[in-house]
Amino acid sequence: MNPRILPYVLILPVTLFLCLFFLYPFVLVSKQAFSTGAGFTLENFQDVTSHWKFPISFKNTLLLAAAVVPVQLALALLMATMVNGMGRGRDLVLYVWTIPLGISDLAAGIIWLAIFEQSGFLNSMLSGLGVIDKPVSFLSYQHPGVVFLAIALAEIWRATAIMLVILVAGIGLIPKEYYEAAEVFGASPWKRFWRITLPLLRPSLQTALVLRVILAFEIFAVVAALGGTLFPVLMGETYAYQFELLNGGAAAAIALIILAISIGFTLLILRILRVPKGASI
């Protein structure tokens, strides 16, 4: 076949597929959000944002992302650096650390439910140590802080692995000579991390942060499993509008709000961590 046409033939299926199931529904969701049946309107947005639950779920979503993502970043960086210097056992440790990568948010929620529920392992441990006499109902409205903590822990537990993988791959791309050179010039391990690893890791940090932040705004099943209605988040509201209130327009409006936040943060991360032209490895 003509080599000029061939690449287009090869990308045609994906392009068609994405047009049909990505771009087209995206247009639909925008249309739905901006209309109530007759013409362009912002009514759906006014509806959802004026609802009493919106500010709470908005705040909760952002708060959760703000609490979870930095911890994950620090943890992933720490793990990646630790793995980097490891000789024997590296593969095993990496396998263990990346297990959560394949675990769904729902399963992660259920796993942490086993710890935090009333007859769960946390209560069992605390009563075994004599700290409490009878099991505490942690995941209830009396303990909003614990609910938040449980959700945050489950998220950190589950989704640090994806950052770890991206960062380990990124560190693997940094030539060892740079470290050796820095060491010869007298840089301590700590200095080497700040002066070499971090700056050269910027492309990977970008990817990892963008991916994580976007997913953090989409948090849904972990919250459903652990907090239920105690801890409303944006994605849960979307689900509720669609199913319980059968209000597609409102669901679409929240969906677009989540999208807007995601894009905003993506651009911000790309801007902060941009690599000057020609300064990449």
Binding site: P7, Y8, T15, P25, V29, Q32, I214, L259, S262, I263
Partner: peptide
């Protein structure tokens, strides 16, 4: 090929979007 950059952008965009949201209009479709 011409449009390679655009195509890669399309692919990266899908990764950067909260895709499950698209389930809503698809339900109607």
């Amino acid at each position: 090929f011409k449009g390679k950059g655009l195509f890669r952008l399309l692919i990266l965009l899908t990764r950067a979007f909260p895709l499950p949201l698209l389930a809503l209009p698809l339900a109607v479709m």
